[in-house]
Design a protein around this nucleic acid. Structure first.
Lengths: 255, 255
DNA sequence: CGGCGAATTGACGGACGTCAACTGCTGTGG
DNA sequence: CCACAGCAGTTGACGTCCGTCAATTCGCCG
C-alpha cells in the first residue's frame, strides 16, 4: 500500500487519534484493493469481517425488499462504511456496490474491535463517528417522511449548490437514475420533477444545473438545518471534476 | 432517587460495564423527574445538556417540518435517548415528548463525556449502543422507502404479536393516531388500512387485534429479518398491561 | 348533560408508480 | 466506417395509493 494512501486514512477523524503503534497494528492486516465500476462489495445479510474505507471512486449503499430496491447513501472519498456492523459483529443491513472504479481499503474488523478495547481515544472516536452517521440517518428519515418528491429534489439541488462552492450553476454528481433512487422516487418521476422545477427558476442541461432564481427555489424547498446537511458528513472532498462537455443549450424542445 | 431505580439504570448495557466508582460519579449529578403525559422534554434544535433515561411510562421522538409532523420512534422503559447528540455535544434533531406519566432520569452529558474518555469499556458500550440505534434507523428507512402503507401495517402487527408472546390476539400499545404517525400515514389512512387488512384475516376490536390466519397475513407482509426487528432494541420490557375491557364484539357494523 | 377528542367513513383531488413508446448517446463488431 | 444493440433519459396515458376536507359516531371527563 502506498504511504500516501496510509496518510489519507490516518487523517480521518477515526484514526487520527490513535497511537502510531496501534495504527500500525490495525492497518497491518489490511488490503488495499481496486475495484471496477459495478462491483458488489457486500450484500445485505452477509457477515461483515472488514471495515471498509473508500479512498477513491464512489460507493452506493443500497437495500432490497420484495424485488424493489432503494439507495440509502452515496459515498465519496474519504469515507468509512459499515462501521456499525463491525462494532456489533453483526450481519450487514445494506448492500455496497462501487459506482465507479474505486480504491478501497479493507481493515480487519476483529483488529479494530480489539484496538477499541485498548484505546479509549479510539473508542471515543468510533462513538463520535457513529453519532454522526446516526444523525445523518435521522435527517434522511425526516427528509423522507416529511417532504414530498419535489421538495426533496429542491433541497437536494440547494445542498449540491452549496457543497460545490455556491456558484449559480453546478454539476449533478451521479446518474439521474441513481439520484432518483436516493430521493426515493422512480426515474420517470424524477424526470417529471425536473420538468416541474423549471417553474422555480431551475434550468437543466444534461448533468448541468443552473439555479437562476435562488430565492424562488428556496421558497419551495424551505431548507432546514435540522434536515439538510450543507456541509459534508465526513472529511470528504467531492469527487473528481465532472465532464465539462455537453451538447450546447439543450433547452426544452419547442414542442 | 430510589436505589431500585438506580439498579435499573445500572442494569442497562450502557452502564453495566462501568466501575462502581465511575457509575457513582456519573449518576451523582443526576435528576430523577416525574412528568405528566404530554410534556415536551426537548424540542428539535435545542442544545442538549442531558442524557435521558426512560424508567417508566413512554416517550415519543418526533420531528417537524413545514407544519407537518411525524413520529420517529416510541420508547418504552428502560431506554436511553438522544445519546448521539450528547456524544457530539450537538443540538437535538428530534423532539421528545411524554405520552404517559413518565419517570425520567437525567444524567449530565458533560459527566458522561468525561467518563467515556476515562473508561474504555464505557466508550465501547456507548459505541455499541449507538451502533444498535443506527441499525434501528437503517431498518426504519428501508421500511419507509421499500414498503407501502398496508405492508408497513402488516409487518407492524406481526412484530407486535411476536413481542407480546405470539398469542393469536394482542393489544395495540398506543393510540391509533400515534401509530399512524409512526407508520408514516394519516389517521384516516390507517383506519382504511385496518379495514383493508380484514381481508387478510385480521380482526380489529378497539385496541385488540386478532390475527386469525397468520399464514395469509405473512404472505402480504413478507417480513424480513433485515428490516423487522422482532426482538426489542434495548432491555425493554413492554409497558404495563393494557386495559382488557372492551365493548363486546364490535365487528364491522352490518352496513 | 354537554363538550372534547379519537376513530371511522365517504367524496374528492393530487402525487406517484407502472407500462409503453421514443430519442439520443455509446460501445461493439461486421 | 457504418449498423446495431443497449442503456439513460424523457414523455404520455393510465391507475393506484394516499392526503385533505367534511360529517358522523362514540367514549371519556368535566
Amino acid at each position: 500500500m502506498r504511504s500516501a494512501d496510509l496518510d489519507r486514512v490516518r487523517s480521518l477523524p477515526l484514526f487520527s487519534v490513535m497511537s502510531d503503534e496501534l495504527f500500525k497494528t490495525v492497518t497491518s492486516g489490511a488490503f488495499l484493493q481496486k475495484f471496477p465500476a459495478g462491483t458488489t462489495l457486500l450484500t445485505e445479510g452477509d457477515a461483515v469481517d472488514f471495515l471498509y474505507v473508500l479512498l477513491d471512486g464512489g460507493v452506493e449503499l443500497g437495500a432490497t425488499w420484495n424485488d424493489k430496491e432503494t439507495t440509502l447513501a452515496v459515498l465519496r472519498p474519504v469515507s468509512t462504511f459499515i462501521l456499525a456492523a463491525v462494532v456489533l459483529e453483526a450481519d450487514a443491513l445494506m448492500s455496497a456496490q462501487t459506482i465507479e472504479r474505486s480504491d478501497i481499503l479493507m481493515l480487519s474488523g476483529e483488529a479494530l474491535r480489539r484496538a477499541m478495547k485498548e484505546d479509549t481515544a479510539l473508542a471515543c472516536a468510533v462513538a463520535q463517528e457513529l453519532s454522526g452517521c446516526y444523525r445523518g440517518l435521522v435527517r434522511a428519515i425526516k427528509n423522507q417522511k416529511l417532504r414530498g418528491g419535489l421538495e426533496r429534489l429542491a433541497n437536494y439541488l440547494i445542498t449540491q449548490k452549496v457543497r460545490q462552492g455556491g456558484g449559480e450553476t453546478f454539476t449533478l454528481p451521479h446518474e439521474k437514475r441513481l439520484l432518483a433512487s436516493v430521493l426515493g422516487m422512480t426515474p420517470e418521476n424524477l424526470s417529471r420533477a425536473f420538468a416541474a422545477i423549471a417553474d422555480y427558476g431551475v434550468v437543466i442541461n444534461g448533468p448541468q444545473v443552473t439555479i437562476a432564481r435562488p430565492a424562488v427555489l428556496e421558497r419551495l424547498a424551505k431548507p432546514d438545518p435540522l434536515i439538510d446537511n450543507h456541509t459534508l458528513p465526513t472529511t470528504a472532498p467531492i469527487g473528481k471534476a465532472q465532464r465539462e462537455r455537453w451538447p450546447t443549450a439543450q433547452t426544452r424542445s419547442p414542442s
